[in-house]
Design a protein around this nucleic acid. Structure first.
Lengths: 169, 169
DNA sequence: AACTATTCGTTGCAAGTGAAACGAATTTAG
DNA sequence: CTAAATTCGTTTCACTTGCAACGAATAGTT
């Protein structure tokens, strides 16, 4: 299984796609995301960005668009559009911050809160379903490993931001 | 940490986004994918779908578009476009299968093979970099856990296909 | 106080993605 | 042997996504 190839550096080695981590993560995350998106869409007419906004508002209360950017790891454009949709459906309110009138403060309405409280169990059930074959210690292990991988990508992400923010690309 | 909430089913529990598996997978996979896509793009002018096609052709030799669909987990439209691009850059050839003239057989050219052999180490280095904080046993564990999760999504995926193929949706 | 730089959120625009429709080729049924 | 059904790959179209540009508001500088 652990093919040691390092000896011969001119070997035209090929890459086994289905064991290649970036590929595996991409396929897995896509499948999970599509499956759960279907839950949100079918049950509540919400898409993932909209749901993420509601999840954060439901957890922390009122927040600005920029605050939601950081909490949800989504682009501010995506937040803006999600907020517009949620506003039209009266799941949130959007009012200008009197202290800084560039900011808009988003907050769940009572109806939005009710929907939020309905979705949470659905989302958690979906997650539980995904994890149901894993033992408690395996889940803890998964958590640890994902955290490590996340940290690894954060390092490079911050490097990129340092350059990316300054230059055009 | 493991807050037991199951007792009170009316509690308006909120969902902690950063520990929610679908969210974590999505963010992580996105970051990894973007980072490695930059490698391919910057170094070789290739995008992920194009690279995946080359990886499979480099490993198994000539293949049809449909075959590549299954091997790469990408849509046939994506394969078709990737193939067009690779053809224009003369990294692959595309000829009609004489045995079944609906099929087109794709194959790496000598130039394509050379590029392939150049990219593989870059890709593997990127993966190694991502994994460098993980011990050998942690990598094995990660492999096991991802496999389990993949299997879980395959079950639901096949259910969907069973319905999806028969009906309009 | 006036002028520049920065931040906030929205809008416009270009690129990627997948579903559906399509023509061509093959297989299956009658 | 003809006609319907299926398969293969491409094209078209609708939708999502993120970058860049923008106006409005605030902060910083001289």
């Amino acid at each position: 299984m652990t093919r040691s190839r390092s000896a011969n550096k001119d070997a035209p080695e090929h890459l086994v796609l289905e064991t290649f981590l970036p590929y595996r993560l991409s396929v897995l995350a896509n499948r999970v995301s599509n499956a759960i998106a279907q839950d949100y869409e079918a049950g509540f007419g919400l898409r993932v960005p909209e749901w993420r906004v509601m999840a954060v508002l439901g957890r922390f209360g009122a927040n600005t668009a920029t605050g939601l950017c950081h909490q949800t790891a989504m682009d501010k454009v995506t937040i803006s559009r999600a907020a517009t949709t949620l506003l039209a459906r009266k799941f949130i309110t959007r009012k200008t911050d009197p202290d800084d009138r560039r900011r808009t403060i988003l907050e769940l309405t009572a109806a939005g809160q009710r929907v939020h409280d309905e979705i949470v169990p659905v989302a958690l059930a979906h997650e539980a379903d995904l994890l149901h074959t894993l033992s408690q210690s395996e889940r803890a292990q998964l958590d640890r490993l994902l955290t490590k991988l996340q940290q690894e990508t954060e390092v490079t992400a911050s490097r990129e931001n340092a350059r990316g923010a300054a230059q055009t690309r």
